[in-house]
Simulated scan of single mutants.
Amino acid sequence: MDERPSPEAARAVAEEEADVGVAASHADLSGLEATPFRIDRLVLVAPRGHPLARRERIAFAEALGSEFVGLSGDVALGGHLDGHAARAGGRLRTRVRVRGLDAACRMVALGAGIAVVPEVMAQRSGDAEALAFVPLVDSWAERRLVVIVRRRDALSSHARRLAEHLAGAA
């Protein structure tokens, strides 16, 4: 198992570095078989007392003036957000960086800043009562994830079972 941004995951499967991958459908999936996996909605997570916590929804660019709990460089979502911040004409003001989404939610609950995480991760956070989840209105904040393989019929039995399990979990 290796976490990579969607374009790199698709490339790894296409170039036979990986048998099975999960990628956002916006990646170049040419020549790959793709099976729907799930919708991954990104939300802004803020401590309950933060001014943005009262918003019903927000554009990512509007949050760029706040201090963020960022994700370390090897976490795919961190690079994804950095790219969208740059395209919006800004950058993330990162107060602290953590390696995982659970840690990001814990740091937000402690008041270290705000973060953008998948909605399902925010809801599973043990600190959910201390957090406010604000949907992002940006079109890129709703990602359609797919399970990708080169050819399902050419997979080993273990890889085929993994791909089928992931697709069945959709």
Rank of each mutant, 00 (worst) to 15 (best):
A59G: 15
R95E: 14
A59K: 04
R93E: 11
H80N: 14
E67C: 05
A61C: 08
G89E: 02
G83M: 00
V96H: 13
L92D: 00
A76V: 11
R87N: 04
A86L: 12
A88P: 01
G100E: 09
T94R: 13
E67G: 12
G90F: 07
A59R: 13
L77T: 02
H84N: 02
E67T: 11
V75H: 13
R87W: 05
V96T: 13
G78S: 08
A76L: 08
A88G: 06
R93Y: 00
S66N: 15
A63Q: 05
V69M: 11
R93G: 01
R95G: 15
V75P: 05
L77W: 00
L64I: 02
L81V: 04
R95M: 10
L101Q: 07
V75A: 09
F60N: 03
G89Q: 00
G100N: 14
G83H: 01
A61R: 04
A61K: 14
F60H: 01
L101M: 09
G78F: 03
R91E: 15
A59L: 10
G100Y: 06
T94S: 11
L64C: 00
T94Q: 09
L81P: 03
G90M: 01
L71T: 08
H84L: 04
V75N: 07
G70K: 00
V96I: 15
S72A: 13
L101R: 02
T94P: 10
G70R: 06
G100A: 09
G78T: 02
D82G: 14
G70Q: 06
F68S: 01
G100M: 02
R97E: 14
V69Q: 08
V96G: 07
L81E: 01
